[in-house]
Design a protein around this nucleic acid. Structure first.
Lengths: 221, 221
DNA sequence: AACTAAACGGAGGGAGTTCCTTCGCTTGTT
DNA sequence: AACAAGCGAAGGAACTCCCTCCGTTTAGTT
């Protein structure tokens, strides 16, 4: 992903990827304060390897965040390519993929403490997030113009829904969690779908904007 | 709640209630392994007070679970009383209340390790859960017969939805979480609502049964 | 108002986690 | 085959959490 990656030895590159993928899962389950040793253990690498690649926790978090954003971008490309004339299908397909991949694309948007890193980053993370948001918004609008996505929905509704759905319930097995998530996702898709809901029961509320979300996060010291 | 409660001194009874309420919130956020000291701190009582009232963690968990079930029962009564001829409104009203109260009625259903306590309990907890489930199922069916709740939904879908919605996202403030949860709840209600969805896009799946859920939980050692 | 039993909170020792570094061995690359 | 790069395990320091002990405070009673 990063250019420095290309200079790594093959096994190092493999382990690096493994760590990021595992970290995504563990962060999703336990939050970003999860023990790094558990991430290493579940990734099947020594703790030293993790520290060698990611000197401290913020670095790891930022890499996971960047990786998430890139992955969502790729999936978005693919979904649109596979459904070029059908924005709703592309969106539904995308969401199913994202949930299955357990991506928390919103993480970098929501997690405070990342703020510092975003700034240290020169704003790269935030810029990429905004870019992705724009693309998602375009898809959303297209689906609404097709009349198949409920009016009044924003990408924020959708993203947050995916995050809440992806988040496994603590204390129960992975298989049961997957089952539950799948079932709930289909319900969620129903709530997004327009068909006749639109006229029948329009969303009556002031939608949350991205700026507003950011302000909330910033205010919280 | 319990008869032994009546023998407690007024301040003790007050603190006991406070601890249970706080424990519900903390368990919801962090899972049932959350530090007891945080529960005590957030409840504004000393750690000794918590231990005096609840000698060990399982005892506290069971009390919280029982309290949750009782509370949901009361809310169910109220919702039905307020909408005697309108099951769908009663259901929607109930869900809004439950989310706002941050009740995780399903907790005792989902959390393993509680299994032992359920048995030690002589099955009281499980019996009450099943009883509540039956009542909820009756309401569900009624709303479906009205043609206002989507066909194919079970109380499990609804309960699990409430749990996932109630669960706050980690690392962001309580106020933002509340905002997000409210917005997502309205979406969720939309997905439950029939209106015209029914004919347009019936739920095509095998629903999860309560027995099946229990079996999953038991299997997981 | 005074008394007493009940309840309270905080301090602190001990057990268990988590962090993060050091170091001798292994492996990919040329 | 040689060597640089990468690897995992062990372990000390710091921290967290559990749970009890004990001196102080408070609710309820006479």
């Amino acid at each position: 992903m990063t250019e420095s990656t290309t200079r790594l030895r093959a096994d190092a590159r493999r382990n690096r990827e493994l760590i990021i993928i595992t970290a995504r899962e563990v962060f999703l389950e336990q939050g970003i304060l999860a023990p790094l040793e558990e991430i290493a253990r579940r990734a099947g690498v020594g703790i030293a390897t993790l520290y060698r690649r990611f000197p401290d926790r913020p670095t790891l978090i930022r890499q996971v965040a960047l990786d998430n954003l890139a992955l969502v971008g790729e999936e978005l490309d693919r979904a649109i390519a596979e459904h070029p004339d059908d924005a709703w299908s592309a969106l539904a397909h995308l969401l199913r993929r994202l949930v299955r991949l357990r991506i928390t694309a919103v993480m970098p948007m929501l997690v405070p403490g990342l703020e510092d890193d975003i700034r240290a980053d020169g704003g790269t993370l935030k810029a990429r997030r905004n870019q992705l948001y724009d693309r998602l918004e375009r898809l959303t609008r297209a689906a609404q113009q097709e009349g198949r996505l409920r009016q009044g929905l924003t990408p924020i509704d959708i993203w947050l829904g995916v995050v809440k759905l992806s988040r496994p319930l603590p204390g129960i097995g992975a298989d049961l969690n997957e089952l539950i998530t799948d079932q709930q996702l289909e319900l969620f898709l129903g709530s997004l779908h327009a068909v006749a809901l639109d006229a029948a029961e329009p969303l009556r509320r002031r939608p949350l904007t991205l700026d507003e979300l950011d302000r909330h996060l910033k205010r919280r010291e």
